[in-house]
Write a protein that binds this DNA or RNA. Structure first.
Lengths: 157, 157
DNA sequence: TAAAGAAATGATACAACATAACATTGAAGG
DNA sequence: CCTTCAATGTTATGTTGTATCATTTCTTTA
Protein backbone atom coordinates (compact mmCIF):
# COMPACT_ATOMS: atom_id res chain seq x y z
CA UNK A 1 0.00 0.00 0.00
CA UNK A 2 1.55 3.23 -1.13
CA UNK A 3 2.12 6.19 1.07
CA UNK A 4 -0.48 8.91 1.10
CA UNK A 5 0.70 12.11 -0.54
CA UNK A 6 0.17 15.48 1.07
CA UNK A 7 -2.66 16.17 -1.30
CA UNK A 8 -4.32 12.88 -0.46
CA UNK A 9 -4.20 13.85 3.17
CA UNK A 10 -5.68 17.26 2.51
CA UNK A 11 -8.48 15.71 0.51
CA UNK A 12 -9.13 13.13 3.16
CA UNK A 13 -9.31 15.81 5.79
CA UNK A 14 -11.66 17.83 3.59
CA UNK A 15 -13.85 14.79 3.10
CA UNK A 16 -14.13 14.31 6.83
CA UNK A 17 -15.09 17.91 7.39
CA UNK A 18 -17.76 17.73 4.70
CA UNK A 19 -19.22 14.55 6.05
CA UNK A 20 -19.18 15.85 9.59
CA UNK A 21 -21.30 18.73 8.33
CA UNK A 22 -23.70 16.40 6.55
CA UNK A 23 -22.42 17.12 3.04
CA UNK A 24 -21.30 14.65 0.41
CA UNK A 25 -17.79 14.52 -0.96
CA UNK A 26 -18.63 13.51 -4.51
CA UNK A 27 -16.11 12.78 -7.24
CA UNK A 28 -16.75 16.10 -8.92
CA UNK A 29 -16.31 17.97 -5.67
CA UNK A 30 -13.16 16.03 -4.95
CA UNK A 31 -11.68 16.74 -8.37
CA UNK A 32 -12.53 20.43 -8.28
CA UNK A 33 -10.95 20.78 -4.86
CA UNK A 34 -7.90 18.85 -5.95
CA UNK A 35 -7.44 21.11 -8.96
CA UNK A 36 -7.71 24.15 -6.75
CA UNK A 37 -5.19 22.74 -4.27
CA UNK A 38 -2.70 21.92 -7.01
CA UNK A 39 -3.04 25.33 -8.62
CA UNK A 40 -1.54 26.96 -5.53
CA UNK A 41 -2.93 30.31 -6.51
CA UNK A 42 -6.37 31.85 -7.01
CA UNK A 43 -8.48 30.54 -9.89
CA UNK A 44 -11.72 31.77 -11.38
CA UNK A 45 -14.75 29.54 -11.66
CA UNK A 46 -14.22 29.36 -15.41
CA UNK A 47 -10.55 28.49 -14.91
CA UNK A 48 -11.79 25.50 -12.91
CA UNK A 49 -14.26 24.55 -15.64
CA UNK A 50 -11.44 24.48 -18.18
CA UNK A 51 -9.05 22.63 -15.90
CA UNK A 52 -11.65 20.01 -15.14
CA UNK A 53 -12.63 19.52 -18.74
CA UNK A 54 -9.00 19.13 -19.75
CA UNK A 55 -7.95 16.81 -16.98
CA UNK A 56 -11.02 14.61 -16.79
CA UNK A 57 -12.89 12.49 -19.27
CA UNK A 58 -16.13 13.83 -17.90
CA UNK A 59 -17.35 17.35 -18.53
CA UNK A 60 -18.58 19.94 -16.09
CA UNK A 61 -20.47 23.18 -16.58
CA UNK A 62 -19.95 26.57 -15.01
CA UNK A 63 -23.19 26.31 -13.08
CA UNK A 64 -21.98 23.17 -11.34
CA UNK A 65 -18.61 24.66 -10.54
CA UNK A 66 -20.27 27.66 -8.91
CA UNK A 67 -22.43 25.32 -6.86
CA UNK A 68 -19.43 23.29 -5.80
CA UNK A 69 -17.50 26.42 -4.85
CA UNK A 70 -20.44 27.67 -2.80
CA UNK A 71 -20.54 24.36 -1.02
CA UNK A 72 -16.84 24.47 -0.15
CA UNK A 73 -17.08 28.09 0.93
CA UNK A 74 -19.84 27.11 3.32
CA UNK A 75 -17.64 24.28 4.58
CA UNK A 76 -14.88 26.90 5.02
CA UNK A 77 -12.52 24.90 2.85
CA UNK A 78 -12.39 27.52 0.10
CA UNK A 79 -12.34 31.33 0.21
CA UNK A 80 -13.60 33.74 -2.39
CA UNK A 81 -11.49 36.79 -3.22
CA UNK A 82 -13.93 39.40 -4.50
CA UNK A 83 -11.28 41.81 -5.72
CA UNK A 84 -10.09 39.13 -8.15
CA UNK A 85 -13.33 37.20 -8.65
CA UNK A 86 -11.26 34.16 -7.85
CA UNK A 87 -11.16 31.35 -5.36
CA UNK A 88 -8.42 29.79 -3.21
CA UNK A 89 -8.27 26.85 -0.87
CA UNK A 90 -8.13 27.68 2.79
CA UNK A 91 -4.54 27.55 3.98
CA UNK A 92 -5.69 25.57 7.01
CA UNK A 93 -7.00 22.67 4.99
CA UNK A 94 -4.63 20.43 6.89
CA UNK A 95 -5.88 21.47 10.32
CA UNK A 96 -8.59 19.73 12.22
CA UNK A 97 -10.13 22.83 13.76
CA UNK A 98 -11.94 25.69 12.06
CA UNK A 99 -10.45 29.09 11.25
CA UNK A 100 -12.96 31.83 10.93
CA UNK A 101 -10.85 34.95 10.98
CA UNK A 102 -8.29 35.51 8.31
CA UNK A 103 -7.50 38.01 5.63
CA UNK A 104 -5.53 38.08 2.40
CA UNK A 105 -2.91 40.14 0.63
CA UNK A 106 -3.23 39.98 -3.12
CA UNK A 107 -0.30 40.86 -5.37
CA UNK A 108 -1.26 43.66 -7.72
CA UNK A 109 1.10 42.32 -10.34
CA UNK A 110 0.79 38.53 -10.42
CA UNK A 111 -2.51 38.06 -8.59
CA UNK A 112 -1.06 35.64 -6.12
CA UNK A 113 -2.64 35.69 -2.68
CA UNK A 114 -1.37 34.97 0.77
CA UNK A 115 -3.64 34.15 3.68
CA UNK A 116 -2.90 35.82 7.02
CA UNK A 117 -4.30 34.67 10.35
CA UNK A 118 -6.11 37.40 12.18
CA UNK A 119 -4.72 38.39 15.49
CA UNK A 120 -7.43 38.46 18.22
CA UNK A 121 -6.74 42.09 19.06
CA UNK A 122 -7.36 42.98 15.43
CA UNK A 123 -10.64 41.08 15.45
CA UNK A 124 -11.61 42.93 18.57
CA UNK A 125 -10.70 46.30 17.12
CA UNK A 126 -12.68 45.67 13.95
CA UNK A 127 -15.68 44.58 15.96
CA UNK A 128 -15.57 47.73 18.03
CA UNK A 129 -15.12 50.06 15.08
CA UNK A 130 -17.94 48.44 13.19
CA UNK A 131 -20.19 48.71 16.25
CA UNK A 132 -19.34 52.36 16.64
CA UNK A 133 -20.83 53.14 13.23
CA UNK A 134 -24.01 51.21 13.93
CA UNK A 135 -23.29 47.81 12.42
CA UNK A 136 -22.75 44.31 13.76
CA UNK A 137 -19.80 42.48 12.25
CA UNK A 138 -20.76 39.27 10.46
CA UNK A 139 -17.55 38.29 8.72
CA UNK A 140 -14.14 39.84 9.21
CA UNK A 141 -12.54 38.31 6.14
CA UNK A 142 -11.06 40.90 3.78
CA UNK A 143 -8.41 41.54 1.16
CA UNK A 144 -5.56 44.02 0.95
CA UNK A 145 -3.72 45.03 -2.17
CA UNK A 146 0.04 44.54 -2.15
CA UNK A 147 3.08 43.54 -4.11
CA UNK A 148 4.81 40.23 -3.51
CA UNK A 149 8.57 40.12 -3.08
CA UNK A 150 9.04 38.14 -6.28
CA UNK A 151 7.27 40.82 -8.33
CA UNK A 152 8.95 43.62 -6.42
CA UNK A 153 12.42 42.31 -7.28
CA UNK A 154 11.52 41.76 -10.93
CA UNK A 155 10.17 45.32 -11.15
CA UNK A 156 13.45 46.76 -9.90
CA UNK A 157 15.52 44.96 -12.54
CA UNK B 1 -27.56 85.16 -5.60
CA UNK B 2 -28.88 82.07 -3.91
CA UNK B 3 -27.07 80.24 -1.20
CA UNK B 4 -24.93 77.25 -2.21
CA UNK B 5 -26.41 73.95 -1.14
CA UNK B 6 -24.32 71.28 0.55
CA UNK B 7 -24.17 69.35 -2.67
CA UNK B 8 -22.99 72.42 -4.57
CA UNK B 9 -20.19 72.76 -2.08
CA UNK B 10 -19.20 69.12 -2.41
CA UNK B 11 -19.16 69.41 -6.17
CA UNK B 12 -17.15 72.59 -6.05
CA UNK B 13 -14.64 70.97 -3.76
CA UNK B 14 -14.46 67.96 -6.06
CA UNK B 15 -13.89 70.24 -9.03
CA UNK B 16 -10.99 71.90 -7.28
CA UNK B 17 -9.37 68.59 -6.45
CA UNK B 18 -9.73 67.39 -10.03
CA UNK B 19 -8.29 70.56 -11.47
CA UNK B 20 -5.45 70.57 -8.97
CA UNK B 21 -4.58 67.11 -10.29
CA UNK B 22 -4.76 68.30 -13.90
CA UNK B 23 -8.09 66.62 -14.69
CA UNK B 24 -11.19 68.23 -16.18
CA UNK B 25 -14.47 68.43 -14.36
CA UNK B 26 -16.76 68.00 -17.35
CA UNK B 27 -20.54 68.19 -17.27
CA UNK B 28 -20.87 64.42 -17.56
CA UNK B 29 -18.41 63.88 -14.76
CA UNK B 30 -20.19 66.46 -12.65
CA UNK B 31 -23.59 64.88 -13.23
CA UNK B 32 -22.40 61.35 -12.55
CA UNK B 33 -20.77 62.48 -9.32
CA UNK B 34 -23.87 64.41 -8.29
CA UNK B 35 -26.06 61.37 -8.88
CA UNK B 36 -23.74 59.25 -6.79
CA UNK B 37 -23.72 61.83 -3.98
CA UNK B 38 -27.51 62.09 -3.96
CA UNK B 39 -27.96 58.33 -3.94
CA UNK B 40 -26.35 58.14 -0.51
CA UNK B 41 -25.67 54.46 -0.96
CA UNK B 42 -23.59 52.27 -3.28
CA UNK B 43 -24.62 52.15 -6.93
CA UNK B 44 -23.46 49.95 -9.78
CA UNK B 45 -22.08 51.40 -12.98
CA UNK B 46 -25.26 50.38 -14.76
CA UNK B 47 -27.38 51.99 -12.05
CA UNK B 48 -25.55 55.21 -12.88
CA UNK B 49 -26.16 54.75 -16.59
CA UNK B 50 -29.89 54.43 -15.94
CA UNK B 51 -29.99 57.33 -13.51
CA UNK B 52 -28.17 59.57 -15.92
CA UNK B 53 -30.32 58.62 -18.86
CA UNK B 54 -33.49 59.26 -16.86
CA UNK B 55 -32.43 62.54 -15.31
CA UNK B 56 -30.68 64.12 -18.26
CA UNK B 57 -31.68 64.88 -21.80
CA UNK B 58 -28.34 63.58 -22.97
CA UNK B 59 -27.49 59.91 -23.02
CA UNK B 60 -24.45 58.13 -21.68
CA UNK B 61 -23.11 54.65 -22.24
CA UNK B 62 -21.73 52.11 -19.81
CA UNK B 63 -18.23 52.47 -21.23
CA UNK B 64 -18.19 56.17 -20.40
CA UNK B 65 -19.53 55.64 -16.92
CA UNK B 66 -16.77 53.14 -16.21
CA UNK B 67 -14.22 55.64 -17.47
CA UNK B 68 -15.65 58.39 -15.32
CA UNK B 69 -15.69 56.14 -12.27
CA UNK B 70 -12.06 55.18 -12.87
CA UNK B 71 -11.19 58.83 -13.07
CA UNK B 72 -12.89 59.64 -9.78
CA UNK B 73 -11.34 56.64 -8.09
CA UNK B 74 -7.95 57.91 -9.16
CA UNK B 75 -8.85 61.33 -7.76
CA UNK B 76 -9.86 59.52 -4.54
CA UNK B 77 -13.33 61.00 -4.69
CA UNK B 78 -15.06 57.67 -5.26
CA UNK B 79 -14.41 54.21 -3.85
CA UNK B 80 -15.17 50.87 -5.42
CA UNK B 81 -16.67 48.12 -3.27
CA UNK B 82 -15.65 44.86 -4.94
CA UNK B 83 -17.89 42.66 -2.81
CA UNK B 84 -20.90 44.51 -4.22
CA UNK B 85 -19.54 45.57 -7.60
CA UNK B 86 -20.75 49.02 -6.62
CA UNK B 87 -19.36 52.48 -6.10
CA UNK B 88 -19.75 55.13 -3.38
CA UNK B 89 -18.54 58.68 -2.94
CA UNK B 90 -15.76 59.17 -0.48
CA UNK B 91 -17.19 60.31 2.83
CA UNK B 92 -14.49 62.98 2.99
CA UNK B 93 -15.62 64.75 -0.13
CA UNK B 94 -16.08 67.89 1.96
CA UNK B 95 -12.53 67.88 3.31
CA UNK B 96 -9.62 69.68 1.76
CA UNK B 97 -7.02 67.07 2.57
CA UNK B 98 -6.67 63.53 1.25
CA UNK B 99 -7.71 60.39 3.08
CA UNK B 100 -5.92 57.32 1.97
CA UNK B 101 -6.71 54.82 4.64
CA UNK B 102 -10.28 53.81 5.22
CA UNK B 103 -12.39 50.70 5.16
CA UNK B 104 -16.05 49.84 4.82
CA UNK B 105 -18.73 47.78 6.48
CA UNK B 106 -21.36 46.59 4.07
CA UNK B 107 -24.78 45.49 5.30
CA UNK B 108 -25.47 41.93 4.22
CA UNK B 109 -29.17 42.66 4.02
CA UNK B 110 -29.63 46.09 2.46
CA UNK B 111 -26.23 46.60 0.86
CA UNK B 112 -25.72 49.94 2.51
CA UNK B 113 -22.13 50.80 3.29
CA UNK B 114 -20.46 52.87 5.95
CA UNK B 115 -16.96 54.25 5.63
CA UNK B 116 -14.64 53.97 8.63
CA UNK B 117 -11.45 55.94 9.09
CA UNK B 118 -8.45 53.76 9.72
CA UNK B 119 -6.73 54.20 12.98
CA UNK B 120 -2.94 54.62 12.53
CA UNK B 121 -2.16 51.69 14.78
CA UNK B 122 -4.33 49.51 12.56
CA UNK B 123 -2.51 50.73 9.47
CA UNK B 124 0.76 49.94 11.16
CA UNK B 125 -0.37 46.47 12.18
CA UNK B 126 -1.56 45.64 8.67
CA UNK B 127 1.69 46.85 7.19
CA UNK B 128 3.69 44.66 9.54
CA UNK B 129 1.57 41.58 8.99
CA UNK B 130 1.73 41.98 5.26
CA UNK B 131 5.50 42.40 5.40
CA UNK B 132 5.83 39.31 7.51
CA UNK B 133 4.38 37.17 4.72
CA UNK B 134 6.62 38.68 2.08
CA UNK B 135 4.47 41.42 0.59
CA UNK B 136 4.53 45.21 0.54
CA UNK B 137 1.23 46.85 1.29
CA UNK B 138 -0.03 49.03 -1.56
CA UNK B 139 -3.56 49.87 -0.49
CA UNK B 140 -5.13 49.16 2.87
CA UNK B 141 -8.71 49.77 1.79
CA UNK B 142 -11.01 46.80 2.45
CA UNK B 143 -14.58 45.75 3.14
CA UNK B 144 -16.15 43.86 6.01
CA UNK B 145 -19.51 42.15 5.98
CA UNK B 146 -21.98 43.26 8.63
CA UNK B 147 -25.57 44.00 9.46
CA UNK B 148 -26.77 47.56 9.95
CA UNK B 149 -28.89 48.42 12.97
CA UNK B 150 -31.90 49.24 10.83
CA UNK B 151 -31.88 45.77 9.26
CA UNK B 152 -31.07 44.11 12.57
CA UNK B 153 -34.14 45.59 14.22
CA UNK B 154 -36.37 44.71 11.26
CA UNK B 155 -35.11 41.13 11.37
CA UNK B 156 -36.00 40.75 15.05
CA UNK B 157 -39.62 41.84 14.51
C1' DT C 1 -34.77 -4.51 -1.31
C1' DA C 2 -37.97 -1.47 -3.39
C1' DA C 3 -39.97 2.86 -2.92
C1' DA C 4 -39.71 7.53 -1.34
C1' DG C 5 -37.37 11.58 -0.44
C1' DA C 6 -33.46 14.50 -0.53
C1' DA C 7 -29.12 16.00 -2.40
C1' DA C 8 -26.40 16.76 -6.34
C1' DT C 9 -25.77 17.61 -11.07
C1' DG C 10 -27.25 18.49 -16.10
C1' DA C 11 -28.78 21.67 -19.46
C1' DT C 12 -30.24 25.88 -21.33
C1' DA C 13 -30.81 30.49 -21.13
C1' DC C 14 -29.84 34.85 -19.70
C1' DA C 15 -28.53 38.76 -16.47
C1' DA C 16 -24.96 41.66 -14.71
C1' DC C 17 -20.44 43.46 -14.81
C1' DA C 18 -16.51 45.02 -17.44
C1' DT C 19 -13.12 46.05 -21.24
C1' DA C 20 -11.07 46.30 -26.22
C1' DA C 21 -10.52 48.95 -30.13
C1' DC C 22 -11.13 52.51 -33.10
C1' DA C 23 -13.65 56.92 -34.34
C1' DT C 24 -15.01 61.54 -33.15
C1' DT C 25 -15.41 65.69 -30.47
C1' DG C 26 -13.84 69.42 -27.82
C1' DA C 27 -10.86 72.20 -24.86
C1' DA C 28 -6.20 74.36 -23.81
C1' DG C 29 -1.77 75.95 -25.08
C1' DG C 30 1.51 77.57 -28.41
C1' DC D 1 -5.79 79.52 -35.67
C1' DC D 2 -4.23 75.11 -35.40
C1' DT D 3 -2.22 71.43 -33.14
C1' DT D 4 -2.43 68.27 -29.59
C1' DC D 5 -4.20 65.63 -26.14
C1' DA D 6 -8.01 64.59 -23.06
C1' DA D 7 -12.60 63.06 -23.07
C1' DT D 8 -16.34 60.81 -24.99
C1' DG D 9 -18.92 58.06 -28.65
C1' DT D 10 -19.78 53.65 -30.74
C1' DT D 11 -19.83 48.91 -31.40
C1' DA D 12 -18.67 44.62 -30.16
C1' DT D 13 -17.39 41.23 -27.13
C1' DG D 14 -15.39 39.08 -22.96
C1' DT D 15 -16.11 37.63 -18.16
C1' DT D 16 -18.63 36.52 -14.11
C1' DG D 17 -22.66 34.81 -12.06
C1' DT D 18 -27.67 33.21 -11.51
C1' DA D 19 -32.54 31.38 -12.68
C1' DT D 20 -35.10 27.56 -13.81
C1' DC D 21 -36.52 23.17 -14.62
C1' DA D 22 -35.15 18.33 -15.71
C1' DT D 23 -32.58 14.32 -14.45
C1' DT D 24 -29.61 11.45 -11.86
C1' DT D 25 -27.74 9.51 -7.77
C1' DC D 26 -27.54 8.76 -3.05
C1' DT D 27 -29.70 7.63 1.52
C1' DT D 28 -33.23 6.32 4.41
C1' DT D 29 -36.79 3.51 5.81
C1' DA D 30 -40.76 0.79 5.44
Amino acid sequence: MRKLTLIDKLLQNAEEKCQAAGGRFTNKRRDILENLIRAEHPLSAYDLVELYNQSSEQKIQAMSVYRILDFFIEMQLVHKLPTLNKYVVCSHLACKHNHKDQYFVVCKNCGDAQEIAMNPTLTKELNESVSSVGFQLIDAQFELLGLCNACASKASN
